[in-house]
């Protein structure tokens, strides 16, 4: 395993002094068959930072995120979350020891999906406490208390006993965020959390995410919401064709892009008028 460092990583504004990166993605490559989706990406995230990954669809940004919690098994490279380092091992993906390590990574890095993926047969509160009780062994009362705290945080205490089918898309996604928070992870991974939402419902989800970012949650966010990246991100990584093309603070990457590919992407995403040449 190589020990490459992310040249762009700097401790964020909220990072405690002297803290080491809590997430390290080391020279990660991913193939789907002959298709080379990630061509060696290195990413480091310090505690209490928010990182945004932007890029076209098919650029590899979601694959990168899904490799961090091993929903996709990377082909080459390593993932480290909160001191636990797991090397890509596609040849032994079903090996019990490897799978247990992956589970430990997932306890540390919780994901919020584009399609929410709430459990439709469980009430909101049951969605939240299922994994803490069964996976982490948290006592039921304590799990419920934690769940209620985070449900309140996303502003949905009144939906505690509803089934997901009765919620709007925005409410579902806020519940999904609360479900991830109830696991009390070290890092939150967001995979295009507002892309499946009706435009009028995007705001309520972004508000929750911005609040989390400002409170110092460690977040890695794949998004098309440039306003969110500008507002909440410590760093923005623009990825194209499986490699990072441009990395920097949001006002640099989004305001004064240097690479022509970044400019083209932003022009398409924001409309020509917003991008300085």
């Amino acid at each position: 395993m190589s020990d490459v460092r992310d040249p762009f990583a700097r401790p964020g504004a909220l990072t405690p002094a002297g803290a080491a990166p809590i997430v390290r993605v080391g020279d990660l490559q991913k193939f789907y068959g002959a298709n080379h989706v990630l061509k060696g990406v290195t990413l480091e995230v310090y505690p209490r930072e928010t990182i945004c990954l932007i890029g076209k669809s098919g650029s590899g940004k979601s694959t990168l995120l899904r490799c961090i919690n091993f929903l996709e098994e990377p082909t080459v490279g390593s993932i480290e979350v909160d001191g636990l380092r797991v090397g890509a091992d596609p040849r032994h993906a079903r090996n019990a020891e490897h799978r247990e390590q992956i589970r430990q990574i997932r306890l540390r890095a919780q994901m919020v999906f584009q399609e929410f993926n709430l459990f439709p047969h469980l009430r909101v509160i049951e969605n939240l406490i299922e994994a803490p009780i069964r996976v982490k062994g948290v006592p039921r009362d304590q799990a419920i208390a934690t769940a209620e705290k985070y449900l309140d945080k996303v502003g949905l205490s009144d939906k505690r006993d509803e089934y997901p089918g009765r919620l709007s898309g925005g409410q579902k996604q806020r519940v999904a965020i609360a479900r991830a928070l109830t696991m009390e992870p070290k890092v939150l991974l967001f995979d295009e959390p507002t892309s499946a939402l009706d435009p009028t419902l995007v705001g309520e989800v972004l508000n929750v995410m911005e609040e989390l970012a400002h409170e110092g949650a460690t977040m890695i966010v794949v998004t098309h919401e440039m306003a969110f990246a500008r507002e909440a991100a410590d760093r923005v990584y623009f990825i194209e064709d499986g490699t990072f093309v441009e990395v920097g603070q949001p006002d640099e990457v989004l305001g004064h892009p240097k690479d022509p590919r970044t400019r083209e992407f932003l022009a398409r995403t924001l409309g020509e008028a917003h991008v300085p040449a």
């Binding site: 919690n69 929903l71 589970r103 430990q104 997932r106 306890l107 919780q110 994901m111 999906f113 399609e115 993926n117 709430l118 459990f119 299922e130 994994a131 069964r134 996976v135 479900r179 696991m183």
Partner: peptide, 16 residues
């Protein structure tokens, strides 16, 4: 498939 992914992401075992 999303149900499986959500359960995996919550670190549930296959049996769970």
């Amino acid at each position: 498939r999303g149900q499986l992914e959500a359960a995996s992401a919550l670190a549930m075992t296959d049996r769970m």
